[in-house]
Design a protein around this nucleic acid. Structure first.
Lengths: 232, 232
DNA sequence: CTTATAATTTCGTACAAACGAAATCACTTC
DNA sequence: GAAGTGATTTCGTTTGTACGAAATTATAAG
């Protein structure tokens, strides 16, 4: 299948396989969330066995896409980050296009984009972006990297998606709903508060979260109104 | 990668890999052209080594997607045909959509569709088809199979694409241009005439074709005005 | 009928990507 | 500091898809 054989680096021309793109995107994602892209974290995110991740990470390291400190996690190199952002751009533009132009329901959009992002050419993605008016953010509010890999990295995920175990700070709470604001204030979920998700029930269930030292429970709707950033 | 393991048949649920879809589509295509889907013909069409095709054809036969008579070529089973038509539908709708909605230039449309057709879900394809007004033909005039695998198989390729060595009958000549009509008449290329392409120069070059028993030369533009069907 | 040529298959091999089982390593807790 | 626990890696194997070289078979030519 592969004609290209690039011993290492040579980032620009290198053609990446779909699994490789998935690994890089996952690592980028985890790093953005402030977490360490450890073998286990990757295995869980990609729904693979840890052993498989181990092997792949080693290969990606020899290809110069990431650096791996054993037992400490992987960090993307410049080349790896570029590739990850390219995939992220594809993903978010596809999601936007499918949802807004073709009316694909939100539940399906992610899975669809997940497959198409490996098959669409860069120029096709640019065409879709153009049709959308070259947006800088997708309908979720997530930033879309530009063709040349510039992205607003200060974007924050919500408490509803924040990874279990990773500490974070509340950056903002939605100001759309006064009652909500009051409620969140009662839970001490105000900008600046330290949080750490303790557990999350599946299927959009309630979230157990430490706010400071207090263990609180919060529903998914309220959690989505709270934006979190990683702490250094 | 594959979770599904279906020993054989069970056509509907079976998930096919991209290469498998490509093989089936190529076999369907060759059969439509009246030719035999021999190992060599497939190898050339798919740009693979004959040895690789041999192996794959054997595997597809055990999976019940085709029947293989050694040294005589492959024939699709009902299951194989269904799968091929599904891929063909995806391909033609994608081509149509990319060209007409997104303005992708015709030269690029084929290659793009070739990759996307393996990644897009059926419902996405249906959405695109709907956006196009559920057309029955693509911009080339080629018929688009319906969701349930119905297709107008009387469609004919032009002399410009007719495979070398395969005999065929002239079905129609374009009536758009009187001068062209006159010219084709002089070459005896009229509906009903028997033809067989002897050689074709690469890069859209001139075509050596037997019309009846006479060896004639014809340019690609004129050849595109002549539609051919296989002879039984 | 034999031989040459071309098509096809077989065989051994390679690579990417995955897995489970077993070994190893890091860190926490006595 | 020793021991245990959990994370990680190593190892051997599997599957899908591809290749080249060599063997085989079908067909055409003599």
């Amino acid at each position: 299948m592969t004609d290209e054989r690039s011993s290492h680096s040579d980032a620009a021309t290198l053609t990446l396989t779909a699994p490789v793109e998935d690994y890089l995107k996952a690592i980028y994602d985890i790093q953005q969330g402030g977490g360490a892209a450890t073998t286990n974290a990757l295995a869980e995110r990609l729904a693979l066995a840890p052993a498989s991740v181990s092997g792949m990470v080693r290969r990606l390291a020899t290809q110069g896409l990431l650096e791996h400190e054993p037992y400490r996690g992987a960090r993307l190199t410049a080349a790896g980050r570029t590739a990850a952002l390219r995939t992220l751009r594809r993903h978010r533009i596809l999601e936007s296009y499918l949802a807004t132009v073709l009316g694909v329901p939100w539940d399906d959009v992610h899975a669809e984009a997940e497959r198409l992002e490996h098959a669409a050419s860069d120029t096709l993605i640019d065409r879709m972006a153009h049709a959308l008016g070259d947006p800088l953010f997708d309908p979720h509010g997530a930033p879309i990297p530009t063709r040349d890999g510039v992205v607003d990295e200060t974007w924050h995920t919500t408490l509803a998606e924040w990874p279990v175990g990773t500490r974070g700070t509340v950056m903002s709470v939605s100001d759309k709903d006064a009652v909500m604001l009051r409620y969140l204030g009662d839970l001490e979920l105000r900008p600046g508060a330290m949080i750490q998700v303790h557990a999350r029930a599946p299927y959009d269930g309630p979230i157990d979260v430490f706010v400071g030292t207090e263990l609180r429970q919060i529903g998914p709707t309220a959690a989505r109104a709270v934006r979190i950033a990683a702490v250094a």
